[in-house]
Design a protein around this nucleic acid. Sequence first.
DNA 1: AATGAATGAGGCTTCATTCAT
DNA 2: CATGAATGAAGCCTCATTCAT
Lengths: 190, 190, 190, 190
Amino acid sequence: MPVDIEGEVPRKANRGPAAGPENRRALLRAAREVFTESGLSAPFSAVAKRAGVGQGSLYRHFPDRTALAAAIFEENVAEIEVFLAPEERTLDDLFDVISDQAVVSTALIDLTVGNRHDPAVIALGARFREVVERLLARERAAGRVGAHVDAADIMLAAGMLAGELSRIDEAERAETSARARRQFRRAFAA
Amino acid sequence: MPVDIEGEVPRKANRGPAAGPENRRALLRAAREVFTESGLSAPFSAVAKRAGVGQGSLYRHFPDRTALAAAIFEENVAEIEVFLAPEERTLDDLFDVISDQAVVSTALIDLTVGNRHDPAVIALGARFREVVERLLARERAAGRVGAHVDAADIMLAAGMLAGELSRIDEAERAETSARARRQFRRAFAA
Amino acid sequence: MPVDIEGEVPRKANRGPAAGPENRRALLRAAREVFTESGLSAPFSAVAKRAGVGQGSLYRHFPDRTALAAAIFEENVAEIEVFLAPEERTLDDLFDVISDQAVVSTALIDLTVGNRHDPAVIALGARFREVVERLLARERAAGRVGAHVDAADIMLAAGMLAGELSRIDEAERAETSARARRQFRRAFAA
Amino acid sequence: MPVDIEGEVPRKANRGPAAGPENRRALLRAAREVFTESGLSAPFSAVAKRAGVGQGSLYRHFPDRTALAAAIFEENVAEIEVFLAPEERTLDDLFDVISDQAVVSTALIDLTVGNRHDPAVIALGARFREVVERLLARERAAGRVGAHVDAADIMLAAGMLAGELSRIDEAERAETSARARRQFRRAFAA
DNA sequence: AATGAATGAGGCTTCATTCAT
DNA sequence: CATGAATGAAGCCTCATTCAT
């Protein structure tokens, strides 16, 4: 029962510009968590709260939901790039990362799809396509993938898989992922 | 606070209980349109408005979003049952209906997935599975589908396809649908 | 999942005018129950539903909440009149009835107070006052009540008691009633 | 659907966080007024409007009706504590404050009674009881109150009085208050 | 005279966004 | 540059009341 006669407002100290990058990271982490737990429609403000950051800062870093989604997407793509860089990575490894990222990814996908024409989104799509193309070339050369398969096939499969995984219960993900991958392996086999 | 500018009270005439079934149909039609155009997150009230029906009537017929989704889903399943009944229907025909229904279907899927444990939803899922099983038996007998394929495979494929189609632009649907079906045909081939 | 293609509406048979008084009784009983359970602010329609009667019939019998309250009040007063008629009834008996009726009564009181100028309400108030006056005359004659007490005192006490009882938990009613009556007995003693 | 007739966007200026405590006070004042005038069932939003404050701010300060009631109650109890602190205050002074606060108090009482188990409400009840106990001890010591009276008696009387006063017309309050206090004086006399 | 569906106003609450400090 | 309160529009849902049958 705060009596609050002369209203002390004990607000968090302003830590100055130094806090910028740190806040940005906190926001991204928080956004992943929030979107994972509550879906895309989670209150935008929940992200700020979870990150322990003011509403205003959230808006400064990410002027809208798309910007936030793009930033997360960017991290995902970066992770994929790194993970798939080694020569020995296979299509199966791609599906592994996709499966791992699925839940957040699809909230993402839904969002990015809604802003398909945003330049940032387009750029990220292109980066992802690059990865896929390099991978595909290797897989084809190794005879693990037939000539009838092109990058669009892989991307479609990845999208469908991510979408499906994001919709279902945690408990069913592993099995569903395995089943889908069996299908795609057969579909893509040489 | 009706201002009652000209003493006009333009409350729509109460057409009496006779309007009931008609309203129900109008609401379902409107719901399909609205969800197709604006996705699941469209204001629930938009459905009533589009149907030309009072808010209250919407709630009487469908106490919540799930009830409405289940009713649409029911119509879809009924259509699928009828369409796939003839002996000569194939897996490709299933993918045809799915593709046709995709946009609404996925709003549906998202919704039904959210209420996976609603008895009505469960019952409809079971009906769909029945159809798939009958179809699969025929396809297998005809040698068009391999023994490695089970009903869950078909249902997964249908779900992934519908999900994907619902996310993309109208313009890309035909091609994407064709591509996915090529993949599934190969995956399921004997 | 009613398909409802040609909408049969199996409505309750119209039992004709004979049902009138029966419905009225059912409505009053239902109203007591509903107001007791859910307070005055219970949906008006809940009364009709509980009574197993159409909305329209409720409105026909009782054009508004006040009319309904007045009718219940009327029954209460009638009961009080009968109960307190015998020579040997005392002030304590009055408090007994009040306590019994308290929960519904106060929903009533709140409502009637809101329509203090409704003729029906005024008439009922007068009838209650009559009862009180007769009782008071007897009690005074018997030397059980002092000369300093008038009808308004009794009515005030009754009102305060009913109000209090209506607010508290079922479990505390007996004790609170006893305590209040101890106070009033002392206050009114010769 | 803001029609935006002249491109005018007359959104009230955001006066910033500084407005916080001021808003809180305005809301409490407004709540007292609104509840006094229209009873507990007044639209919650009326409080915000009366206070000249956005809906959202109302909800920020008081997440629900109970929180608001508790805050008003808190002010009342604080006032009572201060007013009854001096040695020379009597039971009659208590009834004075109660009478003064009656109208709002009972909206309060009705509300707090509905949330009897809210910790804030419990704490306030305890504070009130403390005041009553101190007062009662003095009155008893002074021989103005009999040994048969305990704190529960006083609290019951106060509750009944407040309840009654809140129900009746402004015009009758003074007389009713006087009458009730005559009764209690007699009931509690040594 | 009874029935119960239809109607829509209005209260409730949440949330995106702005902006004083 | 960060903070978080303020704002109000807009969706949700309930309910009093009407009225065709």
